[in-house]
Design a protein around this nucleic acid. Structure first.
Lengths: 238, 238
DNA sequence: TGGGAGCGTCAGAGTTCCGTCAAAGACGGT
DNA sequence: ACCGTCTTTGACGGAACTCTGACGCTCCCA
């Protein structure tokens, strides 16, 4: 397996490393980048949560001993809005601490000092099982009469031409398309696209929904696919 | 969390324990049963694969040192057809063996001797993340002769067309449908839909119940599904 | 047979919510 | 430092939704 993603080598796996010890971060970053992961790093809990919200990593490696906040709090902060795999690092061998971290929502717990091989193997395992359950092929292509969305390639095609979407537009589209037919509440949309601390800024939604409609709907002022449910949320229909 | 299943306490979680050391199996079985898990045990790889196929466990605890076959072979045998979480136990601390087991498809790796608390926490973590991703329950459909309610998608279909409901109408419908066949008092309806400080504003109910009937009943003035129980409340019947 | 209580129906007033536009701010690359 | 792109913000008109009061109906009981 050359690519860390295994099944879908199109885009590489994004890892968020959270640790306050520079040498550990360096070792991790070097090893991960050598294996074609994209890596973000944070050295405290606050920036970690922020990065998680903006960068949407595919897996998180978290050292419990942070300067600004309890590691378990970081886990809870993440679990409030995402199911991203969390791999905990810790110098403590205490059983209680392991139990607490795992029950707070961590996926795995590795005690320092750890072997890099083992850590990478556990990371692969965490990423692998987070992949969609559909045995291999997944309905990454969604088609409507007017346009086609390729979730894997992150591409939208309309009338033979690729439509250019900004990151936010794409993210919004992705959440809606992944819930085709289902109503998605404005709160959920805001939190998934803008991060867990958002939830009431519905004007963002109005602006970006308008952009999507302008780019994808045949008649943007009478949308067929991006339906508004007043007071509740939005719904994508094929 | 009292029940090991967490979100769905209806049926207990089924664990398959695979180990050839009787004392370890005994300890695990006792601890697991005390926590209301259903437990099956196998002491070799062949029966393990057989039991896995017939019993469909929710999680597997596997000792790598089996008499009849290599532990990694058991993992591969399982991974050929199921994504059930596999928790590996092993006396070996070797990094290579961990990597091999994890890459073969194991979800976690615990070295003996292990703390029972930690093992149980890792087990909970494995079961938790295997739960369906959709916020909890999904595909809750209620059907009548005239219309269909999809509680997850927040959709009502009638004669092939989607019916549009306002937030209040939805909320009211939801409470009634979740209590299909049962009488729901006006007080309870008012408090669930309009908030705890409401309880006597029965005119709200009259108005919105009329809306629901107009949108969903074949003959709104002679409702079949949204039945009034004078002086008491309302009842939804299929 | 008359009257009251509970319910269904309707339409208008008031409020909230949404689509749209424009401009300012933030960011990254040259 | 400049420019282009993307994101954030504010303002406004119009649409959708909720609330409210009035009226008529039916059922039950005196």
């Amino acid at each position: 397996m050359l690519s860390p993603t295994g099944g879908t080598p199109q885009t590489s796996t994004r890892v968020l490393v959270i640790d306050d010890e520079p040498q550990i971060v360096r070792a991790l970053v070097i090893n991960l980048k050598a294996r074609k992961y994209e890596v973000d790093a944070a050295h405290d809990g606050a920036t970690a949560l922020e990065l998680a919200a903006t960068r949407h990593p595919d897996v998180v490696v978290l050292d419990l001993g942070l300067p600004d906040m309890d590691g378990v709090e970081v886990i809870r902060g993440l679990r409030g809005w995402t199911r991203v795999p969390i791999l905990v690092l810790s110098a403590r061998h205490s059983s209680d601490e392991k139990v607490e971290a795992l029950d707070a929502g961590a996926d795995d717990y590795v005690t320092k000092p750890f072997g890099m091989d083992e850590l990478l193997a556990r990371l692969r395992a965490a990423v692998r099982r987070a992949e969609p359950a559909g045995g291999g092929e997944d309905d990454v292509m969604v088609e409507t009469e007017e346009f086609t969305v390729d979730l894997a390639a992150k591409k939208v095609n309309r009338g033979g031409k690729d439509v250019r979407l900004t990151p936010t537009e794409w993210h919004l589209l992705e959440v809606l398309v992944r819930n085709t037919g289902r109503l998605v509440s404005q709160r959920q949309l805001l939190q998934e696209v803008w991060g867990p601390s958002y939830g009431t800024e519905t004007n963002y939604l109005r602006v970006y929904m308008a952009q999507l409609r302008r780019k994808l709907e045949a008649d943007p002022s009478h949308p067929k696919h991006f339906v508004t449910e007043p007071g509740m949320g939005y719904r994508f229909e094929k």
